[in-house]
Design a protein around this nucleic acid. Structure first.
Lengths: 367, 367
DNA sequence: CTGAAAGCGCTTACAG
DNA sequence: CTGAAAGCGCTTACAG
């Protein structure tokens, strides 16, 4: 709490403030404030006068003073799935939100949590209603159920409540911003890694697990990207697609459809750990396995060398940045970039630790 | 500039402020301020009384008010190499610093730039002297010349000026923080990619270019990591090391030391584009080439498919976070994590665009 | 439509 | 050693 040394005190480059504007325009600061915030109740004439002065002096509001003086305490909400022991994916976004919340608490911003069941559209609908009756100033949501989400954001539009998508987005929406991944391109990336590993021989299997319930869109796009890469590149390799429904995920025999000896690589569009577990039991460690997401299950098999590559979409950061986008928009009136595709990170046993250390750092984003 | 709807106004969860503390301790706010900042001139007795109250009420200072009221305008400086058309690497950290500077300008923080010639220790020494006479509140530096940097930071220690390292660090220093990469592990990662690509056949060449001048430490560590991986893993592959001095980098024949037909992969510990250029001319596109850093030259050959993988250390982010660490430490008195190793990102033709879009975004870090 | 005044939670001289 | 007062650049009632 103590300053170790005298600090530099500069008064020179003083920016023009509301008071200077008022002086130059020969009005009171109250009137200046009215035009800054477009509150009306100002005659056209004085309005113009003030705008001219602001223009000439290149006025920039002091946001620190704004925050301190303002009685407004923006309330944000998030509407995302809750995680379960079976599917931990959504824990990461939640952590990102909590971290952001802590950092912006100093600015009077609070965050409320509305978590729904990712397998039940009804659950989403109910929580969406709860959000509306909570009357928030901004919403972060994962629009997993397109139709229901679409109805919901229309209501937000009417109420002029800004909202940000994470994970996926809706086509026709007026969302402030979107933080997600390019699933198609990630499929191409996986294909490249696979090509390198297999070198034009054998069969490569694309496995979709439980896509009748979850991840439908992402999995499809990943598969498409993967196929497209091989169409353009390596004609020597044969691709097989295997769809395994959620009910059968514990049935290890579902993989045996493909002749054992031929398989040189497997691309799991989700739940790679299930495939890894199978390969591990069968002792097939030489098969290249590429999957998605740094879940604990996946990490275990990555460390064991059963999974070779995991592609990560930074779910923690998606949510963190989503909250910050709302914060910057509402409190600082900053311009927000609409589409934000996270870089596709490739994780291997070798860079896993650096990645976890950095990404999971709970101490705060910058420290 | 206009609010589209009425905002939530909450007065309930009012945090205790300096005024409440003063009331409860039966002193003036001035005295409270003295103990908060340990300015002395307070009797032991009242000091204890105030500390007790702060403890009980769990007092947390309001940093927004602090910034507004304070006359202190922290001045940061950076001491890093300047970039040249021949070596653009250091442009990225500079961009990161500039971006951070813009974001924290609202808090009265300014940044001064002291750029030195990365090949001349004298240049570093001179600029370091300039930094000292500028009397900054915090320093961000790349301690490229160990001895000179060591002398310099000792002076900073004496002056109690906090400093942060980027790119590399000094062993014995009292730096506030460090943002860099794990070069050894990045070498291992490169080796894994190489192993996947070459599948136990042929010769792999490790090429060090111009390491008598620059990057000595990083290049050495990268090489060590690379070799270590192969020691532990694939005995079937033979490794060759090729050191090319800067004078010979335009002499394409320097590569011919290794029999042509044997080479299945090349690992360039720096300046991969030079190797790529050579391979391109010779039409040897089937050789796997792995290098470092997203410089424009490298990117060109990555897009062409001559370079297969680039490992990136996020130089922009290193510098950006370094400045933020100083800012948070000085202005908000936040706890700063000392060692920050950036994740090792693997860039290919497939994920290059997403990466560049995100990383190079000049609009601000979060938007 | 406009202005004067109080206040946001701190810091900073200044007076005693 | 301690307190009272002014001020940071805004916002917010309130009065006219």
């Amino acid at each position: 709490m103590t300053l170790n040394r005298k600090r530099n005190i500069i008064n020179s480059s003083k920016r023009t403030g509301i008071k200077e504007i008022a002086g130059l325009a020969d009005v009171s600061i109250g009137t200046v404030d009215r035009v800054i915030h477009n509150r009306g109740q100002v005659s056209k004439k004085t309005m113009k006068k003030i705008l001219d002065v602001m223009d000439k002096t290149n006025y920039r509001p002091n946001f620190v003073a704004r925050v301190l003086a303002s009685k407004e305490k923006p309330r944000l909400v998030c509407l995302i799935p809750f995680h379960t022991p079976e599917n931990m994916y959504w824990e990461a976004p939640l952590e990102g939100i909590i971290k952001a919340e802590k950092e912006i608490a100093d600015y009077g911003v609070t965050v409320n949590y509305f978590l729904f069941n990712q397998y039940l559209a009804d659950s989403f609908e109910k929580k969406a209603r709860d959000v509306l009756s909570d009357n928030p100033d901004g919403v972060l949501l994962a629009p997993i159920f397109s139709k229901q989400a679409s109805d919901f954001v229309k209501k937000l539009d009417n109420l002029k409540i800004p909202y940000v998508f994470i994970d996926s987005k809706l086509k026709e929406a007026n969302n402030l911003s979107f933080f997600g991944q390019n699933s198609f391109r990630s499929g191409m990336l996986a294909a490249k890694l696979m090509e390198f590993s297999c070198r034009s021989k054998g069969t490569i299997v694309i496995v979709n697990i439980g896509t009748e319930y979850e991840n439908i869109h992402h999995a499809r796009e990943r598969e498409n990207g993967f196929k497209t890469y091989f169409l353009n590149n390596t004609p020597g390799i044969s691709l097989h697609v295997l769809n395994i429904s959620s009910e059968n995920i514990n049935n290890r025999d579902s993989l045996v459809e493909i002749p054992d000896t031929d398989i040189s690589g497997i691309f799991a569009t989700s739940s790679a750990h299930i495939i890894a577990n199978y390969l591990n039991h069968k002792g097939k460690n030489q098969i290249t396995l590429i999957g998605y997401d740094l879940t604990n299950d996946n990490i275990t098999f990555l460390e064991k060398g059963i999974i070779d590559f995991l592609i990560c979409q930074k779910p923690r950061e998606q949510a963190f940045r989503g909250i910050y986008a709302l914060f910057h928009h509402i409190v600082f009136k900053k311009q927000i970039r609409r589409n934000n595709l996270m870089p596709l990170d490739i994780i291997t046993r070798e860079n896993l630790n650096d990645y976890l250390e950095f990404e999971l750092n709970k101490e705060g984003y910058y420290e």
